[in-house]
């Protein structure tokens, strides 16, 4: 029962190419382990949703007034 190792391989597989032994270990383990079978779609979902936080989906931005206030603060510096 080594979910710790198997989930590590799953994650490593998203970052780099796994060797054949690692791939087989994942598949074999998932045949009988519900947790690690569930882990994979969960983890893929995380990859998808986290990247939606960046880029065009602007979370928030500075208003014109706020930028002017920053300028004023900088001008006051001595």
């Amino acid at each position: 029962m080594n979910c710790e190792k198997i989930t590590y391989y799953i994650e490593k597989g998203y970052l780099t190419e796994l060797n054949i032994t690692e791939k087989i270990q994942i598949k074999l383990h998932q045949l009988y382990c519900k947790c690690c079978k569930n882990y994979e779609p969960d983890s893929l979902t995380l990859n998808k949703v986290f990247k939606l936080l960046a880029g065009e989906n602007k979370v928030d931005e500075l208003s014109k007034q706020e930028k002017e206030a920053i300028k004023t603060a900088l001008e006051r510096m001595d």
């Binding site: 080594n2 710790e4 190792k5 947790c35 690690c36 779609p41 969960d42 995380l46 949703v49």
Partner: peptide
């Protein structure tokens, strides 16, 4: 050893949130 701790086992429900 190495198994998921009770109460923290992946349920496979996250794809619902997309």
């Amino acid at each position: 050893k190495g198994g998921f701790v009770e109460g923290h086992q992946p349920q496979g429900k996250l794809p619902e949130i997309e």
